[in-house]
């Protein structure tokens, strides 16, 4: 199996990444902070191809929490794309949007969730929702392709209308488990 196939969503017909891209435009998002994940690869390509979006690849996810705060100070809306393991890197920085009462929407692709192969992904994947909620984030899950767009829409609306960190977790049932050929 080719690596590209191995690392991308199993159902190429599923258009949920394109629908997320459409929502980012609809909500007037201007800054996209990300640490890449295979599950986000199609959405990342769409964002990189859009000259109206400022796409910033981070060295660690907590940088994105800080960057979105700076963006909001300057009147721009941003979104953070990451994998579930990256949520663990964000914990203390989430105090920034909470204390300042600023929007911080996150779109998280899950690992360690449904049919995981890699033992190292399980601890953080299993804790992702609890960790976010422990840090005051409103979390919604999408476990079918049809659920992704409405859930992301709700996450963006909650963040920008009520000024707080919010997250959509896109389950591994939607993304397909990375099997390393096994």
């Amino acid at each position: 199996m080719q690596r590209e196939q191995l690392e991308s969503a199993p159902d190429a017909a599923a258009d949920w990444p394109d629908r997320i891209y459409g929502l980012l435009k609809e909500h007037g998002i201007r800054q996209v902070a990300l640490v890449p994940d295979a599950g986000h690869s199609r959405l990342i390509k769409r964002c990189l191809a859009d000259n109206d979006l400022k796409v910033v690849t981070l060295t660690t996810e907590e940088e994105g929490i800080a960057m979105l705060f700076g963006a909001w100070l300057g009147g721009e809306k941003g979104v953070l794309l990451m994998q579930s393991s990256g949520v663990g890197n964000c914990i203390n920085m989430l105090s920034v949007p909470i204390a300042h009462r600023t929007p911080c929407p996150m779109i998280v692709t899950m690992r360690g969730d449904h049919g995981e192969f890699n033992p190292f992904q399980v601890p953080m994947g299993n804790a992702t929702q609890q960790v976010l909620e422990a840090m005051g984030t409103l979390v919604k899950r999408a476990d079918t392709a049809e659920d992704v767009a409405p859930t992301v829409n709700a996450t963006l609306r909650l963040a920008f209308n009520t000024y707080r960190p919010t997250a959509t977790l896109i389950g591994q049932r939607v993304l397909g488990a990375k099997t390393f050929g096994k």
Binding site: A66, M67, F69, A71, L73, G74, M93, V96
Partner: peptide, 22 residues
């Protein structure tokens, strides 16, 4: 001025988000 009371390690990235927005 935006004086920070926390978010240690984030000041430069806040500057980047703000600089890109303005």
């Amino acid at each position: 001025n935006l004086p920070l009371w926390g978010g240690m390690g984030g000041a430069a990235m806040m500057g980047l988000g703000l600089a890109l927005a303005q």
